[in-house]
Design a protein around this nucleic acid. Structure first.
Lengths: 257, 257
DNA sequence: CGTATACTTGAATTGAGTCAATAAGTGTGG
DNA sequence: CCACACTTATTGACTCAATTCAAGTATACG
């Protein structure tokens, strides 16, 4: 179907030979768990990291593989998914630079992770990174924060999958992308969708046709405007947010302790 | 709708005056994060814990409340849910004794937690528990493991909500309950459903009618047999598992490292 | 024992899925 | 640079699984 069974092919990234630590020069360090380390400790990370580049559709690992490595995404986009025996697929997340991957501290990965377009990652052997966590509690605390945030996002996604209509799902999806982009790139720039409509459908629990129809409806209502097929401008963010089905925002409720 | 707006009412549990630490006598300690502490450190937990009892339908906290406490469930069942502005509800989980509650290390709770039937919890002030985490890394590690497991469960639930049919969802739900019960009570005993059909529907992204029809179908096919309305025997676990839509079980796949 | 609540069942409706036919991109080689 | 092939996206017509609406029937409770 849409799960290319290619294994990861490593295009080795030239190892820096200058004195400076590669991690010190890393552009996503501050956002990722590595940011928990002091500059002077970065060589400890450098010592166990392998940099890798992956082409479109190549898997970092497959559901069921022994989980021997953890990853931090430094460039590109990764989709993470689970599958039923008959091929029905559910994408549980799209990852972006600085995102952490492989958190399941279990023997096997519970999902497959695949590159969307060109991707770069830092790979850490699980055992060695765990040893570092013991040594640097700040890093472990940061990992806990990451897990906690992902859990909150997963709960939002359950609300979406269990209770939202098709347009609401698509609107929510666009809003999330928009907010993430605003954080990184600032506003104004058009929103780029690196994933296919099939990916979006499998993320939102819809078919591609329904995704397409929902996008068309948002276009018709002048809420978004497409530039090509995978770039768009959000013309009316307020309307989009309204359709997304404003979760109750609980403006300072009274609390009886 | 079905969200009683009652605040928690504390039925004080008599504080033990014997010399022994209450935590030392706790029946769920080993399964919960408290199990990470040595016996000699348990008084540190005792010092910050408050025991509470809650009646059916009473909330521990509401979505949007300041998250000042963390909880461990010691008896009963708790439902955790989020809601859309128009009242659509999604239950993101049912919690059982030894389960941890309030993990979101954020300023506010992202969901509401309510007692189903009589419930007992240990309540810890967030700041004080976090201080303990700093002191006892084993406990923090355990918390990370909890978060990691919950994340895996959340991903399974996304697969269910996004891609499974009604009967598959209900079958999966029963199987999960069965497996959890097997772990605790051993096999044989009938399965008890403490929650209403409405709860089940809101957990599975279905209406009560569809839940009821699915259960009827499983009854008709002699896969389950009800004893009253909230207790049932699972007659044919294999068939149930088959319907639940066997996630690929990836029997030792080859891995190219 | 009656009343409220929770659950089941049936009939009609509908939102999203399926099937099928374009249309719009994307990439390749001549 | 264009023509062709191929993939990806859109649109339309029809179907169907789950919802909605509407009775009924258990079950629990004061």
């Amino acid at each position: 179907m849409n799960a290319p069974l290619r294994r990861e092919i490593i295009a080795p990234v030239p190892r820096r030979t200058t004195g400076a630590s590669p991690c010190a020069a890393c552009t996503v360090r501050e956002q990722s768990i590595c940011g928990a380390l002091e500059a002077r400790d970065l060589d400890r990370l450098d010592a166990i990291v392998h940099h890798k580049a992956l082409a479109n559709g190549v898997a970092l690992f497959f559901e069921g593989d022994r989980s021997e490595n953890l990853y931090i995404l430094t460039a590109g986009c990764v989709r993470v998914w689970k599958m039923l025996a008959d091929g029905r697929r559910q994408i549980t997340g799209f990852l972006y630079p600085s995102d952490f991957l492989g958190l399941a501290l279990r023997e096997r990965y519970a999902y497959t992770a695949e590159a969307i377009g060109d991707v770069k990652v830092c790979r850490y052997p699980k055992a060695k990174l765990e040893a570092l966590l013991d040594e640097f509690p700040a890093m472990e605390r940061r990992l806990l924060a990451v897990a906690s945030n992902e859990l909150a996002a997963a709960q939002d996604q359950m609300l979406l999958l269990g209770r939202k209509t098709a347009v609401e799902r698509v609107a929510t999806f666009l809003l999330i992308l928009l907010r993430r982009m605003k954080l990184k790139n600032g506003l104004g720039a058009p929103l780029h969708l690196p994933m296919t409509r099939t990916d979006i459908g499998d993320y939102l629990g819809l078919t591609i046709e329904t995704v397409s129809r929902s996008l068309t409806r948002l276009k018709r209502d002048a809420i978004i405007r497409f530039v090509g097929t995978s770039d768009l401008n959000i013309v009316d963010e307020a309307k989009l947010a309204k359709i997304a089905g404003a979760e109750e925002d609980w403006a300072m409720p009274t609390t009886v302790s």
